[in-house]
Every structure is written in C-alpha cells, then in structure tokens.
C-alpha cells in the first residue's frame, strides 16, 4: 500500500492504494468520481480520458502512484458551476451522445484536441479522437460537436 496525493478538480485529494492500483480506479473507487468510465482493458476505448497537468490522458494507462502531485481534471470538474464548458454545450446541442457511456471520455479528449488545435479540420478531429470509441452515435454528431465547440470557444 502507498499513500498518494494529487489535486483533483481544484481540490487536494489523497488516499491509500495498492501499488498496482490504476489511476482510473483511484479516481472512481477512492475519490468516488464515477463520471470517468472504464470501457476496456487495453487502453483502446478512451472512456477513462481525463486531463492530467493540462493534457488529455487515458487514466487507465497509468498507476495512481504515477500521478502523485499531479493536477487532474475529470469530467465532474469541467463545468464552471452551472455554466457548461463549450464542449459540453456542443455535445448536447449536436446530439453527440446517446447512451452517454463514452461521453465523459469523448468530451475530455475533445477538450484536449481543441487546446492543441483550436480550429480543427475533419482530418484533425479524426486523428484527435482516434483513441476514443463510441458504439452508439456513429461519430457523425461527435465530429459536428467538436466543430461547434470550436466555434463557441472562438466566441
């Protein structure tokens, strides 16, 4: 067992974990932030995507201990109070979600993508979301939503 501490959604958090505990399990089980999902065992689906030190990261690809001291944002920390983040706003406007299971990861990945590429082309969106799977939407509205979010963010 080891003690880990990190900043999550602006708050200092800590907990005891087994050495082998994945960051995603720490977030879900210890911190009870269950908006971050688990959809695979091999880091392919992106349902677990969070922001770690400002970058979109799959939280199943690292150990909780590796995030010691990190600054993390999960889907729960994205909106400012009642005010949705433009990516959240665009996802609902464009009907970019159905069952909602991939959605937190998709949104966090899109936030990361738009940070690097504020005005993405279709190809750049395909590339940026390569690591995120959705089984419901056929992605068409997700791609639309990323573009819409880009517009919203440009103001």
């Amino acid at each position: 067992m080891a003690k880990v501490a990190m900043k999550v959604n602006g708050k200092q958090m800590s907990g005891d974990v087994e050495d082998r505990t994945l960051l995603v399990d720490f977030i879900r089980d210890t911190l009870a932030l269950t908006g971050t999902h688990i959809g695979c065992d091999t880091s392919q689906c992106g349902a677990c995507t969070i922001q770690l030190n400002g970058r979109a990261v799959k939280s199943c690809t690292m150990l909780a201990a590796q995030a010691e001291g990190a600054d993390i944002m999960t889907i729960e920390g994205l909106a400012q109070g009642d005010k949705l983040h433009p990516v959240q706003q665009a996802f609902t406007e464009c009907h970019a979600l159905q069952c909602g299971f991939c959605t937190p990861g998709m949104i966090m990945a899109s936030v990361g993508l738009l940070k690097d590429t504020p005005k993405p082309t279709d190809e750049e969106i395909y590339h940026g979301l390569e690591g995120n799977l959705c089984r419901c939407t056929g992605y068409i509205n997700i791609v639309k939503a990323v573009k819409r979010a880009s517009q919203l963010m440009a103001g």
Partner: peptide, 14 residues
C-alpha cells in the same frame, strides 16, 4: 443529456 455530459450518469459500476 445534462447528467451524461457532467459525469453524473449512474451506471451500475458506479
């Protein structure tokens, strides 16, 4: 949508 986009969905594993 509101609950899904804010991470408030409730799936069994949660």
């Amino acid at each position: 949508d509101q609950r899904f986009i804010t991470g408030q969905g409730r799936y069994i594993s949660d």
